[in-house]
Design a protein around this nucleic acid. Sequence first.
DNA 1: GCCAGCCATCGATGCATGTCAATATCCCCC
DNA 2: GGGGGATATTGACATGCATCGATGGCTGGC
Lengths: 119, 119
Amino acid sequence: MAKISPCCSPVLAGPLTKENADELASAFKALGDPGRLQLLGFIAAQPEGEACVCFLTEPTGLSQPTVSHHLKVLHAAGLLDRDKRGAWVYYRVNCGRIEDLRSALATRPARARVTKRAS
Amino acid sequence: MAKISPCCSPVLAGPLTKENADELASAFKALGDPGRLQLLGFIAAQPEGEACVCFLTEPTGLSQPTVSHHLKVLHAAGLLDRDKRGAWVYYRVNCGRIEDLRSALATRPARARVTKRAS
DNA sequence: GCCAGCCATCGATGCATGTCAATATCCCCC
DNA sequence: GGGGGATATTGACATGCATCGATGGCTGGC
C-alpha cells in the first residue's frame, strides 16, 4: 500500500510528481468499481463497523471468489483493515485512509484562490 | 455525466444502491489514472486555472491524442469544464464536482460514530 | 484424525481501457 | 477559399481487470 502523504500532494495544489500520481491513482482506482463501493457501504453499515466475507456475498450478488478479490484490492489500497478471528475474517473500513483521500481532493488548499479577474 | 447527489449517498453512510454505486464508481474511475491526475494538477497549477491541450502534451509526456482522450474522460466525468475559444480549447477544473466527490467520502456523516465499545 | 465450513488462490474468459499513428475536423488568417 | 495549426476521432494493439468455477488451505468441532 503506497503512502499518500496527504499533507504534500493535493491533486489541485499544483503539478503532481509521477510518484504521487501513481499512488493516488491506485487508491482511486480501488474506489472505481461499484461492487467495491457497495462492499464499503455494507461494511460501514454494520453496527460493529465490521463484516465477514460470508455476510457480504449475498447482498452484493457477487460470487464468493469475486467478493474475496474485491476485499483484497480494498485491503491492498489501505481502505480496509483485515482481522482474522478463527475461521472467519472480519473487514473494517479504515477511516483514516478515507480521510487522506479526501484531503488529497481538497480544492485550493492554501494558495489563495485564483480570483478569476477575467481580462 | 451522472449526478452524484452528494447529500444522499456518502459511501460510508450505509448500503449504497446499485445506481449510486455506479455513479460514484465512474467518477472515481476517472480519477484512477496517474496521467489524468497529473493533467488535473497541471491545469489547476495554471495562474488562470485553465490550460489548452497543446500546453498539456509536453509536461505529461503523452501523445496529443492520448491527452485529448484523457481530457474527454475527465470532462465526461464532470471534473473538467471545456471552453472552446477559436481554434484553442481551454480546460478548467470543476471544483464543485470535486467537492461532491469529497463529501461522498465523508466518514460517518451524521449517524453517531460507532463508539467501539468492544466486548 | 476427520469432516464441514469459511476464505483465498488459480486458471480461464470476455470486456474495458490506455496508448499511439494516421486521419479527419474545425478555426483563423492571408 | 486555401493553407496551416490546434483538437478530436478512428483503428489497432496490448494490457489490465472483473468475474466465475474449481480447488486448496485453515480452523473449529465431533
